[in-house]
Every structure is written in C-alpha cells, then in structure tokens.
Design a protein around this nucleic acid. Structure first.
Lengths: 230, 230
DNA sequence: GTTCTTCGTGACGACTGCGTCACATGCTGG
DNA sequence: CCAGCATGTGACGCAGTCGTCACGAAGAAC
C-alpha cells in the first residue's frame, strides 16, 4: 500500500516494526545509519518515515532537520521514536515539526495505527480536490464551481481568477497580484483584461456575483458574507 | 488562525485548553454535551476537534462515530482525550480513525503542539496542489505538468486526461472510463476524440509520450517506468 | 460644479481548442 | 496472406475564449 522508511540502529527494532507494517500491507525500507537517510528518501520517495532520535553517525534530530530544510523532502511525514520518556523531549520533537512522537517501549500495534492515521490524512492531499468555502464549493479536479450546489462552469482563466480570489477571502487582491497569479505577468502591464474577466465572472455567478467586490484603486476581493447593500 | 472545537464536560479542562489555544492564535469553541457536537460542527465548521471520550448525554466514542459516518464531517481531524491510560483504549481511538490520542493528565502545551502538527498537515490539503509521480509533477493549481522540471503546458482536456491516467498508473483505464471521467459521457459514445487527444498528449510530452501506452481493445495506461522497447 | 482617474460594459477580431472525418498503419485470427 | 477491426495521424471547420478598444458611468480630488 504505502512505502515506509524505518530508521533505527537496532536491528531487532527495525525488524519488529517492519514485520508489523508489512502485515498491514505496507512496503518497508530500513536504514541503520543517519547518513543513509537523505539519499534513500530522495531515491525511494517513501510515504512516511519512522525515525529514531538516537542514531550512530548522525543523531536523529539532525537528520530530521535536514529532511525539513530541503524542499524535496519537507512534506514527507515523520514519526519520531525515542527511549527518553521525558515530556520535554516529546515536546521538542513535535515543536520541530514531527508529525508524531512515540516513546520506547511502545506497542508495535500502536505505531502501526498511528502510521495509518497519518497516512490517511496525507493521502487526502491527493484525493480531496474539493474545497468548500461558505456556500461555494470549488472542485479543482473537474474545474468546476458550485454555488449552493448549483454548478457554474467556468473558463480556465475565469476558474483561476476565482480560485485566487477565494484563496484568501479576507484579503484584497491587488490588480498586479491577480495579473501575476492568473496571467503570469511578472511586471505591471497596462491591460484591461482583468476588468473584462471580472465582469464575465460576475455574470456567470449571477446573484453570487455580488460577492466579488471592487476595491477602488487597489484590486478585488471575494467576500463570503454577502456585502450589505449601500 | 484556526477554529477549534473543544468538547469536554469539565469546565476547568475546556478553559485551560482554550486559554492555551488562544494564546497560540486559534479561535476556540466549547461544548460540554455530546449532543451539541454535530450541530455545532455543521454550523461552525471547525478546523479541528478536541474530544473527550467521557461525556454526559452521549459518550465521546459515539459522538466520534457519528462524526465519521457523515460525509460533511468526516474529514474534520479529531484528537481524543481520555482519563484512562490503558493502551487498549489508546488503540481503540486510533483504530476508529482518530488523528491523535492523549491520556490525562497531559500537558496543555503538548496538546497545543499536537494540534499544530495536525493542522499543519491538514492545511497542506488546501495549499499543496502539487502531486509528484516519478519524474512527473502535476500542478493542479496552475494546471501545468512538469517532466524532469520541464514545464509542459496542456489544454484543459489534455490536462484532465493526463490527470486521470496518472491517478492510477498501475491500472489500465478503459475507453469508456476515460470518456466518462474526462468528457462526462455517461454511456458509450462512438467518438474518436479520445484517440486524437491521446495523440496530442503524446506529442506534447515528447520523449515522455512513450509512457502513454495503448492497451489494445481496452484503453490506455500511463507507466511511470518507461516501457521497454520491443 | 469641474476635471481626472478608475472601473463597468458591450462589441469586435484573432486565436485556440476541440470534435469529426478520411485515410494510413498496424494488430489479430483464420 | 488476407479480411476485419482497432488505433494512429493529418486536415478542416465550428465554437468558444480571450484581449483590446471605445465609450459610458461612477468616484475622488479640488
């Protein structure tokens, strides 16, 4: 099902964990030295890493920091293991951005369950492409918008524009920001195409078009709460 | 920052938790009775729920099961709290699909950190729209594909087609499946547009076009591993 | 009020994407 | 080797999208 990298210097531990994980249908990779981790992650692209804090060669915390400092590995979830049961250490791991933290001795079954919990959540990333905002629903996969379950089909450009506006409904999006995000213009270009598209968006949204608010001299904003009539 | 619902029947606990969470910049809602939870979640749409297992009116586990059985609330992360420190309970909570599990007494700081860890991961859902598959990178937000970091810009239809193919690279996607997923045809329609688009895709992908494999009489498949030349 | 700027709006032309068709190619079974 | 079918390929025309422009309306500054 998922590919998991187990990093620990004690072979019995890695073997124990691997057995349990494989029983759950996961594919397992093992590393015993901290220095092996980065290359393995880059090459194998595991879905999750189980990392012991106490490692020879390079300590686990340093390995973890390296993982989180590289954009290619930053998003891989990490569960930390440690023999120290002090709460301060537990907090340290989480504080640095670990996704979970287990203290030895732990039940391998619990580890397996925690892994499942994290994987379930990260898997959503690839599957849930629907984002709900108030009465609006944005379906990235099918490039459609819904307002009160009424489908509104939009052009590619209209979709992108609305997507950017909806990304932050509390902020005003400047003209140059929109031109950059939607059209890819790097520097300010004198064009009226933004205005035209705003108009077309408002038309397609119908009543909901009221939510697209002009901020004179600056740009546009999407208000989830319908703006009060003047 | 985020909206968090705390469900516990002990006011001191909810207050303690709320204080810590608000200090972290979160917005806090509280409920003391299990029956209040569903309506509150539907109305307020919190980003995360902290749920005590021991509740008057309706026990926490039942509340949790209801949350997970409704599509509107299924994706909201839940952290469980309990006074029982037995490992069996801990496993029960995780087994049912809780995102995390803390046993009392716990440090409010640790709870706050665990909340941050989970929120960080779930927030990714809305922000990371990039999905990597081998040498291919799919950027849903900008509707672009990259092969070995080389951008390939695709039409809406081409994008959807490739997206469906990449969704499962180990499966063969039948013609009718593709026509349904990409074009929305419900029943089999005699059309050659799929063939044409496959051709256009292959052209745009260049060398990587080899990955789009014809399965004669069935449909098409995308192979991450380049197919061996005959 | 007047003037200047900003934004809304409708129309138009250019371009692009898309589906169909006709023909070519290639696979399969006999 | 041939007939029959599935797929590859190039060309074509329609429809839809997009950016520009001109003009009108609405604010803002004075």
């Amino acid at each position: 099902m998922s590919k998991i990298l187990v990093v620990d210097d004690e072979p019995d531990i890695t073997e124990l964990i691997s057995l349990h994980l494989m029983r759950e249908g996961h594919e397992c990779l093992c590393a015993t030295n901290g220095l092996q981790v980065m290359p393995m992650v880059l090459e194998q692209q595991p879905d999750l890493i189980v990392l012991d804090i106490m490692l020879p060669g390079q300590d686990g915390m340093a390995v973890f920091k390296r993982l989180r400092s590289d954009s290619r590995t930053r998003s891989v979830p990490v569960i930390m293991l440690t023999a120290k049961a002090q709460v301060t250490d537990k907090i340290n791991g989480l504080e640095l951005g670990a996704d979970d933290y287990l203290t030895k001795p732990f039940s391998p079954r619990e580890l397996a369950l925690r892994i499942t919990a994290i994987l379930r959540r990260t898997k959503i990333v690839t599957h849930v492409s629907e984002v709900k905002m108030g009465a609006f629903l944005m379906d990235r996969k099918n490039m459609k918008f819904f307002h009160n379950d009424q489908p509104i089909d939009l052009t590619t450009t209209e979709f992108k524009l609305l997507a950017v506006l909806l990304e932050n409904t509390s902020a005003v999006h400047t003209r140059s920001e929109l031109l950059r995000e939607v059209w890819g213009y790097s520097d300010d270009v004198a064009t009226r195409t933004l205005d035209t598209h705003i108009k077309r968006l408002r038309e397609k949204l119908g009543d909901a078009g009221k939510h697209v608010v002009t901020v004179r001299g600056t740009g546009y904003q999407f208000l989830i709460e319908a703006p009060v009539a003047a």
